[in-house]
């Protein structure tokens, strides 16, 4: 058991490193002279991201589409039995508390499971939750670039029965309307802190 966990953490570390390097490369290639390098573990501003994904409505979406509105973004996969539905229900609770203010938010679930989560599968899944939630997916390369720019980690974990599950960053990322990264709502964060964090990006 400890061996397996160490293995998972070890692989996660390598993934993170790879993600950081990728993101840094992408970031440098766009901006001629780099100012201070971005922090190793915080998402880039949306304005410095370059990913392109496909929405559950089969539209191509990029970070530029989100600038101008506050955004709430999280990662998951639709085969996820506990974490993702729980996050979705937490979000539903926050939206309820925010009332009509919540309509200003871009809310997106980005899949880390390219293999199973096609746009059609995402569509079926997000329809079960809130119509304001956008489901995004893409090719393995597209998802890898997105993960790198958000500084998130994910890893495919084979199961004994031949199936697989995904470990992934579970926090919810908040961005200001101008695309700056604002904060993260952790998976086990006290709900009383979540709504004020969202209110800050809505202000």
């Amino acid at each position: 058991m400890p061996t397996r966990r160490q293995l998972i953490l070890g692989t996660g570390g390598i993934l993170a490193l790879a993600a950081g390097t990728l993101a840094l490369g992408a970031w440098r290639s766009r901006s001629g002279v780099a100012p201070a390098p971005p922090s190793a573990d915080l998402p880039l501003p949306l304005t410095a991201m370059s990913w392109q994904l496909t929405s559950h409505l089969s539209a191509r979406v990029g970070p530029g589409d989100w600038v101008g509105r506050p955004a709430l973004v999280f990662f998951g996969f639709t085969w996820c039995p506990d974490v993702c539905p729980t996050t979705l229900m937490n979000i539903a609770g926050w939206l309820e508390e925010l009332g009509s203010e919540a309509d200003k938010l871009t809310i997106a679930l980005i899949s880390v499971d390219s293999e199973r989560d096609t746009p059609e599968v995402m569509s079926e899944y997000v329809a079960m939750f809130d119509p304001r939630i956008l489901g995004l997916t893409g090719s393995p390369e597209e998802i890898a670039l997105t993960a790198a720019e958000f500084r998130i980690r994910y890893e495919k974990v084979p199961r004994d029965d031949g199936d697989y599950t995904m470990n992934h960053t579970a926090g919810v990322f908040l961005f200001y309307p101008d695309g700056r990264f604002a904060s993260i709502i952790d998976f086990h964060e006290d709900p009383q802190f979540a709504v004020p964090k969202i209110k800050r990006i809505l202000a």
């Binding site: 058991m1 397996r4 966990r5 998972i8 953490l9 996660g12 039995p81 506990d82 974490v83 980690r153 974990v157 599950t165 470990n167 992934h168 960053t169 579970a170 926090g171 993260i184 952790d186 998976f187 086990h188």
Partner: peptide, 14 residues
């Protein structure tokens, strides 16, 4: 299973 969040990453060990 147990959902465990380590360094922000969720996993579900037996």
């Amino acid at each position: 299973h147990e959902t465990v969040v380590t360094d922000g990453i969720a996993s579900m060990p037996h």
